[in-house]
Amino acid sequence: MIDDETVRHVARLARLRLSPDEEQVMREELSGILEHIDAIRAMDLDGVPPTTHVITLENVVRPDVPVSGLTRDEALREAAHATDEGFGVPRMD
C-alpha cells in the first residue's frame, strides 16, 4: 500500500485537488495497480527482453506533405475560453 504523501504527490503532478475521501480511493486503486506490477516482478523473467510494444510493426511514417487542418474558428470552437485569436488560459507569466 502506498502512503498518503505519495498519493498527494501524484495528485499535485496531475494538478488535481483531492478531498480526503478521494485520496483514500486513489490510494487503494493506485496500490492495486502497483500490486499487479509486483505480481509480474515476482515472475522469473530472465531472458525475456523488455517489451514496449505488443505489435511488431516498425517505421510507420508519413511523407512530409501538408494536409489541411482546422480553421481558426473550428479550432477555437471547443475551447473553454477563447480570445479572438487564441485559447485563453490563466495568466502564466
Binding site: 501538408p66 494536409v67 487542418g69 481558426r72 477555437l76
Partner: peptide, 28 residues
Amino acid sequence: TRTKMFCGCELSFGDPPNTHTCPVCLAH
C-alpha cells in the same frame, strides 16, 4: 520540414495565431 512532427499541419512562422492546427496537434 514542411509539416509538423506527428501531423500534416504546415509549419509557419509569423502567420496569424492558430491557423495551422488539427485534432492531432490540438490533442483532441
